[in-house]
Simulated assay, not measured.
Amino acid sequence: MFVRIRNLREDNDKTQQEVSDYLFCDQSLYSKYERGLRDVPVDIIIKLAELYGTSTDYILGLTDEKEKYPIKR
């Protein structure tokens, strides 16, 4: 998971500071998420999925499909 959130950030040309501002957390805390030094809370995983237009399953490593799941109505 940690490599995926770093790769998503880099693929979207964002800095750690930009992502941490979006998440309303400190940049040093976000850096620890990316390095695997802190567990990423569920609410942060959801916000990251929304930011990058992907699924939480992709971030968690449960699928290799980056595309967001279609919404069923």
Rank of each mutant, 00 (worst) to 15 (best):
Lys32Met: 15
Leu8Asp: 00
Thr15Gly: 13
Ser55Thr: 15
Cys25Ile: 15
Tyr22Val: 03
Val42Thr: 05
Glu50Thr: 06
Asp43Ser: 12
Ser31Tyr: 14
Thr54Arg: 04
Arg6Gly: 07
Thr15Ala: 10
Asp64Val: 09
Ala49Gln: 00
Asp26Leu: 13
Glu18Met: 14
Tyr69Thr: 10
Asp21Trp: 01
Glu18Ile: 06
Cys25Val: 13
Asp39Ser: 14
Ile5Glu: 00
Ser28Gln: 14
Asp13Glu: 07
Lys32Cys: 15
Thr15Leu: 13
Leu51Asp: 02
Phe24Pro: 00
Gly53Asn: 15
Asp57Lys: 04
Glu34Met: 11
Glu50Gly: 03
Asp64Met: 08
Leu37Ser: 04
Lys14His: 06
Tyr58Glu: 06
Gly36Thr: 05
Ile5Lys: 00
Asp26Tyr: 14
Thr54Lys: 08
Glu50Ala: 15
Lys47Ser: 13
Tyr52Cys: 08
Leu8Ile: 01
Asp64Thr: 11
Thr56Pro: 02
Thr15Cys: 14
Ile5Ser: 00
Thr56His: 04
Gln16Asn: 08
Lys14Glu: 14
Arg38Ile: 08
Asp39Pro: 02
Gln17Trp: 01
Ser20Gln: 09
Ile44Tyr: 00
Tyr69Ala: 12
Tyr30Ala: 03
Thr15Phe: 10
Ser31His: 08
Ile59Gly: 11
Arg6Ser: 11
Phe24Tyr: 06
Asn12Leu: 02
Tyr58Asp: 01
Tyr69Lys: 12
Glu50Leu: 14
Ser55His: 02
Lys32Gln: 13
Gln16Tyr: 04
Val19Asn: 00
Leu60Phe: 10
Asp43Gln: 05
Asp43Met: 07
Thr54Gln: 07
Lys14Thr: 02
Leu23Gly: 12
Tyr69Val: 12
Ile5Gln: 02
Arg9Met: 05
Glu18Phe: 04
Arg38His: 14
Tyr52Phe: 15
Gly36Cys: 02
Glu18Val: 04
Leu62Gly: 10
Ile44His: 01
Tyr69Met: 13
Ser20His: 09
Ser31Asn: 14
Leu48Val: 04
Lys14Asn: 08
Leu48Gln: 05
Arg35Ile: 00
Ile44Ser: 03
Leu62Ser: 10
Arg38Tyr: 11
Leu48Ala: 04
Leu37Trp: 11
Ile46Gly: 01
Ile59Lys: 03
Glu10Gly: 02
Lys66Ala: 09
Tyr58Met: 12
Glu50Asn: 14
Arg38Val: 10
Gly53Val: 06
Gln17Val: 05
Leu51Val: 01
Val19Gly: 00
Asp39Phe: 05
Glu67Leu: 14
Ser20Gly: 07
Lys47Cys: 06
Asn7Ser: 11
Glu67Asn: 12
Thr63Asp: 10
Tyr33Val: 03
Glu10His: 06
Leu37Thr: 07
Glu67Asp: 13
Gly61Cys: 07
Ile45Tyr: 01
Thr54Val: 15
Ser28Gly: 11
Gly61Glu: 03
Lys47Phe: 00
Pro70Lys: 05
Ile45Ala: 04
Lys68Ile: 10
Glu34Phe: 10
Leu60Val: 06
Phe24Leu: 12
Leu60Ala: 13
Ile45His: 01
Val42Met: 08
Ala49Asn: 01
Asp13Ala: 03
Asp43Val: 05
Asp39Cys: 05
Tyr69Ser: 13
